[in-house]
């Protein structure tokens, strides 16, 4: 069984430990500004809940027939805590045992998680922005209200922003540490191969 260096084990350990923050910090945020909301409306998405101006956003959006955003809308909230737990466990085991396949497994898991979250968010955004109540008071022909996946987008009188929140940035840091561990491991192996 191939193993990784002590330094890389520490990196993986740190990466897995940082992921624990996902339980305590908001991961993603969506903000809206309008002329009458110069201060902006902000919704935070956590691992298992929503917070922020969700009710005000719902109030604004119901005129155009958008669905009522609520926690029941996201089945992800019921299982993401276990998905994260599993991945963190794999990370810790990789760090403790130093097994290289576990490091790679851990890296693959967070990669899939990242891709999965992006696809999931896109699908939700598409549905939220397109699947409008046919009895809505305001119907603008040809208009859809899909929020941006990341960055800014103008939607009628609103400017919408979507991007990582504190927890999201920490997770990216965690992923960066894992990538670094893999990179260092790959470089030391190459050196070893070159020496022999």
């Amino acid at each position: 069984m191939k193993t990784i260096s002590k330094g890389n084990r520490i990196l993986v350990f740190l990466a897995a430990a940082l992921m624990i923050s996902a339980y305590f910090t908001p991961l993603w945020q969506i903000s809206l500004w309008a002329p009458q909301y110069p201060e902006g409306l902000n919704m935070k998405i956590w691992i298992d809940q929503l917070s922020g101006d969700v009710n005000i956003i719902n109030g604004v959006n119901h005129y155009i027939g958008m669905k009522h955003i609520g926690e029941e809308m996201f089945p992800e909230f019921s299982y993401l805590i276990y998905v994260f737990g599993f991945i963190i466990a794999v990370g810790f085991i990789a760090a403790l045992t130093g097994k290289k396949f576990l490091l790679h497994g851990y890296f693959l898991l967070i990669t899939f998680l990242g891709i999965g979250v992006i696809i999931d968010m896109h699908l939700w955004g598409y549905d939220y922005g397109h699947n409008l109540n046919s009895t809505a008071a305001i119907k603008v022909p040809g208009m859809a209200y899909q929020p941006p996946l990341i960055g800014y987008k103008e939607l009628l009188n609103f400017l919408a922003y979507s991007g990582p929140d504190v927890g999201g940035w920490i997770l990216m840091g965690s992923a960066l540490l894992t990538i670094l561990a893999i990179f260092f491991d790959w470089r030391s192996n190459r050196k070893k191969t070159a020496l022999t």
């Binding site: 500004w33 002329p35 960055g151 400017l159 940035w169 990216m172 960066l176 670094l180 990179f183």
Partner: peptide
């Protein structure tokens, strides 16, 4: 390669954080 990684991550972060990217609304 390490530098490239950091550059890419840094660029993504800058893009998402930079307030200059926020389109101008009514003045």
């Amino acid at each position: 390669m390490k530098k490239q990684f950091i550059l890419v991550v840094g660029a993504v972060a800058a893009l998402a954080l930079n307030p200059g990217c926020k389109p101008k609304t009514a003045e």
